[in-house]
Design a protein around this nucleic acid. Structure first.
Lengths: 363, 363
DNA sequence: TTGAAAGCGATACCAC
DNA sequence: GTGGTATCGCTTTCAA
């Protein structure tokens, strides 16, 4: 082996400079009670010796305890369950903190979400991980919480200008653009295409639409976009809209469903005998979608990597809270494009994991 | 806040049972010198109290030091540099270990690789991360090292039956299958397709070929596969082969380049005026490829996520070495499919990072 | 088989 | 401003 560099600690620095441990510590942490002269001297020798604090010892002494609330909807579970798992996994691996996680659930976005969020704020957690739905409604609450010193971390979407310390989501406009790309690769003749979305008041949904439309204009001039269909995440509404639009004269040959609420749309297609004839790009992955992808009835789906979102959200929150250094504030993940051919790598992420050898996103 | 559960430590258990710290420790770690009776008692109460060892204290006391060698080629740097970065990033975040990393480089696979590996083995590192090239040649060496107690972790490819403790790579046969899928989506009429590969003696390259061929047979009966072209990673050879095959009578309309050595092939296409007329799926992402993807001259590229490979490789190696529990042994990542539309999310991963807001794979 | 005590490295408090 | 010292929770050695 090479590099038998002796590892240096505060003690070594103190000894070398013939000063006390306390002084060294104060100097290193820029605390009051040191003369600028000795402070600089300590800093310089620390640098020179290549001093790195022993994180284990630091953690032990500081004995930090943090409370973090995770405020997310129960529905849609195939997205939020793995997201919560990502958070739990990260928490389990966290060394040197006494981390108390509080999972707070509400039925679904737009129903009980604000109340849950407001309640969480009042509990004065050190940090809160949440999904900002209707941004306008979240803004005042979030801003106040941030001012109160609560570290807010957004997942799934973002709430800019609220003082939140970070956000983790899939890159929304790129998601839309990929969908456009795929449809344009698979529809060679002039056609109409349609987009089914959820809540345009949620920032990310609007972004997906914009990305989709922009990419169509750029790279697929032969495809015409119909007005967006907003289902407000209500299955019946989505079904009705799909049924209707597919019976118009110039019915679309391509569809992008930008929300996980895709089954009603697919059901309508099925009933109209259009499944397989129309190119469909969906969002997320769940059990009912699997056979449709396998058989090619759904061309592709854009996987939003909920596990990774959860993992990164907590990781960055902890970096902020513990190492009080700002992490990468806005993380916008690349969605995974799932076709029938790579579907197998993601199947273990739905429902109970099978303990298989293959791990897809490592997430 | 809820859950003010007091955190229990060994001391609490000792106190509750009126025994000493030493005994509790011995019992918890199944060490000799405890009567079975007290051992069980301790274990039971620990369970009951929900005892979790304080990892920081444990790490501090144990004061473990590990040496890990990373034996990888310099070439191709756009793959191996980020891989090394992933390793460094993980190392920087490791708490409670004095980790000594030794990066050992050799020119390229097949030239100095075995020598470097052999030398590393003789140094008796605690662990070695390496890329097994020609499996047959690596096998005897690796098997011996494993028997000597060195923890071997493969990246980029695998070397089964060597006693290696794990492997991290992209799922090779799925990579091939995705390429086939993309070509079949973009070539609607009967055509020939060709595959350019590197070294078929490297396990993963053979797997890509198999996956490609199998998927073509399954989902693209209208596409015929020509005999594979093996460049042995030599640019001139790849160029020559490409030039030749593109001038045959029934020249292929689709190409899958399963190695990062794609530029010579693309150069040949360019010179023949075929760039843009032929559907090309490449591998990996590097600077010269960017404009070709942007303009649609290359349909897509399969990103092998080197950063993540490095991160996961060291993570799992450390789990094995420190927590002496077996991690997920074989990790086969899903490659990212990069089109012109999501290219922007990956550009910050080539060359110097720009400190932008967008982080693609989080890797 | 069990108990007592030292010590890992960094921090914080109290005395000077 | 600075020095000395107890302390965090766990492991380990030495005595009993």
């Amino acid at each position: 082996m090479t590099n038998p560099e002796k590892i240096v600690g505060v003690k070594d620095i103190a000894k070398a400079l013939h000063i006390s441990l306390g002084t060294v510590d104060r100097a290193l942490h820029d605390r009051p009670g040191v003369s600028p002269k000795t402070r600089d001297l300590v800093l310089k020798t620390a640098e020179q010796f290549g001093y790195k604090p022993n994180l284990a010892a630091q953690a032990l002494k500081l004995n930090r305890r943090l409370s973090v609330a995770i405020v997310l909807p129960r529905h849609i579970s195939h997205f939020f369950d793995p997201l919560r798992d990502g958070i739990r996994t990260t928490a389990a691996a966290a060394v040197g903190v006494n981390l108390a996680l509080e999972f707070i659930e509400y039925p679904r976005l737009g129903s009980g979400d604000l109340e849950a969020f407001r309640k969480a704020i009042q509990e004065h957690y050190d940090g809160i991980i949440f999904l900002p739905g209707d941004v306008r409604k979240y803004e005042p609450l979030a801003r106040k919480a941030a001012q109160d010193g609560i570290a807010l971390m957004c997942v799934g979407s973002d709430a800019p200008n609220t003082g939140r310390i970070g956000a983790v989501s899939v890159h929304a406009s790129v998601s839309g653009a990929i969908a456009a790309d795929l449809l344009s690769q698979n529809l060679t003749s002039r056609s109409e295409v349609a987009i089914f979305t959820g809540e345009l008041s949620t920032l990310d949904h609007g972004e997906k639409l914009r990305g989709f439309a922009a990419a169509l204009a750029m790279i697929a001039p032969h495809l015409t976009l119909r007005p967006a269909l907003e289902s407000h995440e209500r299955p019946r509404e989505a079904y009705r809209q799909a049924f209707e639009v597919m019976q118009t004269k110039n019915r679309p040959n391509g569809i992008y469903i930008s929300t996980a609420n895709s089954m009603p749309v697919l059901k309508a297609l099925e009933e109209l005998g259009l499944l397989g004839k129309i190119k469909v790009v969906a969002t997320d992955l769940f059990r009912e979608l699997v056979p449709l992808i396998e058989t090619g009835k759904v061309l592709a789906t854009l996987h939003q990597r909920p596990f990774t979102q959860g993992r990164v959200a907590l990781e960055n929150l902890l970096i902020y809270l513990l190492r009080d250094q700002k992490p990468q504030p806005i993380v916008q993940l690349a969605p995974h494009v799932i076709f029938r051919t790579n579907l197998c790598l993601f199947e273990n992420q739905i429902g109970q994991s099978t303990g298989e050898e293959i791990e897809a996103d490592f997430c």
